[in-house]
Nucleic acid binder design. Structure first.
Lengths: 226, 226
DNA sequence: ATCCGGATTTAGGGTATCCGAATTTTGCTG
DNA sequence: CAGCAAAATTCGGATACCCTAAATCCGGAT
């Protein structure tokens, strides 16, 4: 339920919660410096905000150890993630944005739109389950689907798999991946790979290419639907 | 040109400039207390911000006298007005908002959208000249059309005129006016009026009604555009 | 020309968020 | 188990806004 947010939650607060959410779902510990790194802030700033958010019951903070979201913090974080991904989806679907340029716009709009507008966009989009990058969109009541799959870098050779999610924010790299046909839903087959984490050879609808291991690690694949 | 905004302009700054712009186009002097009234702030807060904006060259401030926008301030104000009206237009045209509910949403979004998004919305709308209330939308380079016309309260009897602009923000009153068919573009004829600023009798596509003088004063009419 | 009341500004404070410098804690490591 | 480096926190300070209470200014009324 949107029975959240009795009052104004600042941009900052939402950004902190989102960053902590991101770290914890990435399996990384939400340390002061990790948060500072994501938000491009100094560690003392983070310590200060973490203390405030703990007092508000949004975070559990073990000094010198790290933080975790409380249930309330997680709800707020997911609400922000939902808005972000809905905005990205909407801008791509209806306003001609490409997946590499929506991020910054969504980063600002996610803090400004009302629940009303978020739900109207969701409805216009047909309540999508994933955004243009293949990231799952949390539901309005805070459920979020798991994304399962194997990084393209680990996909066995010769098997046709479907790109499920592209975990990359850099605009230029996103354009590059799109030019290779590596977008959510595309079918890919690994045709060969160099040893020791070298480039991967692959065939996509857009042709045959070599892809470096770091990018290949950002692409989550799975068995083609149906 | 969007050659404005070298750096972040806060919500506050945009709101102050917009309020001052609003006052000056309404022919009212932009005094400290008038600004405070529009923004629902205390006069000392306004004095303080006015000082800061003057230092930034956005306002000309004569202490104890009032303020006026500089060219730079006016450009920023018009940019914000443009965004506001584009957002309102877009939400009404594409997301099912009605003209009485868009204002609050636009009030927040006008500070969050990029030039890019503003222009994409404008393009999607076919670069409209007016918003759903009939207010002119400034162009991207800061030109704004004059709205000319006569308040409905002053329209002579028996002449069919067109509603050009409805200068009202209150949601309930807007719904009421819409229910009477008093929306931009509608044809109205004044069929009679009480003396001494009493109600006006009128005929619209939605029927025949009486309208109080204060609301009638908010409706600007003109000769129908054939 | 003086006075007065309303408008405006100054003074003094408060909150939220950020920073750099200094200090404390933690978890090794020799 | 003492010593250290890295990480985290505390400290002191800055900025941007906002407020109430206390001056101060201005223009009209006497």
């Amino acid at each position: 339920m949107g029975a959240i947010a009795a009052q104004a939650v600042t941009r900052s607060v939402e950004d902190y919660l989102k960053a902590i959410y991101r770290l914890s779902t990435a399996g990384q510990p939400a340390t002061t410096s990790a948060i500072a790194g994501l938000l491009e802030l100094s560690p003392p700033s983070v310590t200060g905000m973490v203390k405030r958010l703990s007092e508000q019951g949004l975070l559990a903070h073990e000094p010198y150890r790290g933080v975790a979201l409380t249930a309330a913090g997680r709800r707020l974080a997911l609400r922000t993630v939902r808005r972000h991904r809905l905005v990205e989806s909407y801008l791509v679907a209806y306003l001609g944005y490409s997946w590499d340029t929506v991020h910054d716009e969504a980063e600002r709009l996610e803090h400004a739109i009302s629940d009303e507008l978020a739900e109207r966009m969701a409805a216009a989009l047909g309540n999508p389950g994933v955004d243009p990058h293949g990231d799952p969109i949390p539901t309005a009541d805070g459920d979020i689907a798991e994304v399962t799959g194997v990084p393209l870098s680990d996909v066995p050779e010769g098997v046709a798999v479907e790109v499920r999610r592209v975990d990359e924010h850099d605009a230029e790299r996103l354009r590059y991946l799109a030019s290779l046909g590596l977008v959510p839903g595309a079918l890919v087959t690994v045709t060969g790979r160099e040893p020791f984490g070298g480039p991967v050879m692959l065939r996509t609808p857009a042709g045959t290419h070599a892809l470096g291991p770091s990018l290949a690690g950002d692409i989550l694949c799975g068995r083609p639907a149906e």
